[in-house]
């Protein structure tokens, strides 16, 4: 599939849509609109995963990010109900933002330049999209997660535990 015309068109369209959605997320004044564009962004990323033969990750992306997490985000926005005038207030553009824009522009320029001059990896990864298609997606992920990446996997569980502890102690009622 890689290399076909369809592949490139699909890639370019979803990538541009993802960037567009990301820009909309940070420029909309209404938080619900931002959240909706974030859903669009997550969906575009899921399509990009699909193009790389990572169907499992694509589905997880849709279910967990676009589904569960965004649901939570929208709930919170609805519950907090941002004031209308707060929403209308014009945010001035101070020096820091201008400077940030310049830096982001430099960053993009560097990335584009880097892609144009074709810096290809020093070592090709072991699991290219073709190889994953051959082995099976879920099998590869599960296998790697419990062998080569066993230790990082376990460390991630500590991060989740710490997060839960934090949520409990910061929000529990006074005794």
């Amino acid at each position: 599939m890689t290399g076909s015309i369809f592949y490139w068109i699909a890639f370019v369209v979803t990538a541009l849509a993802a960037v567009f959605a990301a820009v909309m997320v940070i420029t909309r004044r209404n938080p619900i609109h931002s959240a909706m564009f974030l859903v669009l962004n997550f969906l575009c990323i899921a399509v990009l995963y699909l193009l790389l033969n990572a169907q499992f990750i694509a589905i997880i992306q849709v279910m967990i990010y676009a589904g569960a997490i965004m649901m939570l985000v929208i709930f919170v926005i609805m519950l907090l109900s941002v004031e209308e005038e707060e929403r209308r207030r014009k945010i001035p553009v101070p020096l820091a933002q201008m400077l940030g824009m310049v830096l982001v522009f430099i960053l993009f320029a560097q990335l584009i330049f880097g892609v144009v001059v074709k810096v290809l990896p020093g070592e090709q990864g072991e699991f290219s999209p073709e190889r994953i298609a051959e082995l099976g997606d879920v099998k590869t992920i599960a296998g790697l997660l419990f062998t080569k990446f066993l230790f990082p996997f376990e460390v991630a569980s500590i991060i989740l535990l710490v997060g839960i502890i934090g949520a409990v102690i910061l929000s529990k009622k006074e005794r």
Binding site: L107, Q110, L111, F113, G114, V115, V117, V119, G122
Partner: peptide
Amino acid sequence: QSWISGRPILIT
């Protein structure tokens, strides 16, 4: 592969 080391993506 020292040619990589001057490349913009790595430096970024």
